[in-house]
Computed example of a mutant assay.
Amino acid sequence: MRALRILLITAVILGGLFAIADRLAVSFAESEVAAKVRSSQGLTGEPEVSINGFPFLTQVASSELDDVEVRLGGVKASAGGHSVEVTEVAAELSGVRLDGFSSAVADRATGSARISYEDLGKSAPKGATVSYAGAERAAKGQVKVTGPAVELLEGAGVTIPRVAKVVLEGRTIETYSTVSISGGDTVRLRAADLPELPVPGLSGTLRETVDYDLKIDGLPSTIKLDKVAADAIGLRFSGVGTNVSLAG
């Protein structure tokens, strides 16, 4: 009985030591992968990396991690020379194949991110405000775009004749733009319909002014965005990728 007790105590101690060693190893690995992701993606800040699953050491021994979560900062969207921050950028990767810590490639990854209405407004055409369109229109993937007609047109570099300017002065444009994804990395806003301006030739120019694209920079190139949704906070988009390089 005494020998059995000693054996059990020894097993518990060794198990505890293994668990401690395992947690220290995963902490080191997360730091190494974070540094690699920052370097390979050209990020301004260190990403948060969580390697899930226990024990970690047996995963390393098999050169494959079951599940890795990465939260990125420093991702930007750009439109018309304006750059705005993309927030809540995250990727969940499965089947991550290791080559030491010099490189890591995931069989599959799902990515998601968000842009607030405030930041959408910063990237919008000069004079335009982008806001929540209400639950019914948001369910259709639409946002509300408003702005003074004169300011929108002149912000786009359009010269408005004095007479036409008098006619348009005080007129506010209000439309609902449908949001979609193009090319896996570009968010497109296209006005569903626009009011006719009481000045010949300016209605088409107004549409060219209001419609615009945002290109997302900083996501792994193998993650392609394919879904976008509007809610009370802003736009949330997501996508999937295969053979996604996590480091190196």
Rank of each mutant, 00 (worst) to 15 (best):
V12T: 03
V12D: 03
I13S: 09
L14E: 11
L14F: 15
G15S: 05
G16S: 00
L17Y: 05
L17D: 00
F18S: 07
I20V: 15
I20R: 00
I20M: 07
D22M: 02
L24R: 10
L24I: 04
S27C: 06
S27N: 04
S27W: 03
F28T: 09
A29R: 05
E30Q: 12
E30W: 00
E30Y: 00
V33C: 01
A34C: 02
A35P: 10
A35Q: 09
K36V: 06
S39L: 12
S39P: 02
S40L: 07
Q41M: 14
Q41Y: 15
G42V: 13
L43A: 05
L43E: 11
T44I: 07
G45C: 08
P47I: 04
P47R: 14
E48R: 14
E48H: 10
V49H: 02
S50I: 15
N52F: 13
N52W: 14
G53M: 02
F54L: 08
P55W: 10
L57P: 00
T58F: 09
A61M: 13
A61V: 09
S62M: 12
L65R: 04
L65F: 11
L65H: 05
D66M: 08
V68L: 10
V70A: 11
R71H: 08
R71K: 15
L72F: 11
G73R: 13
G73S: 11
G74F: 04
K76F: 13
G80M: 07
G80P: 09
G80D: 01
G80Q: 04
G80F: 05
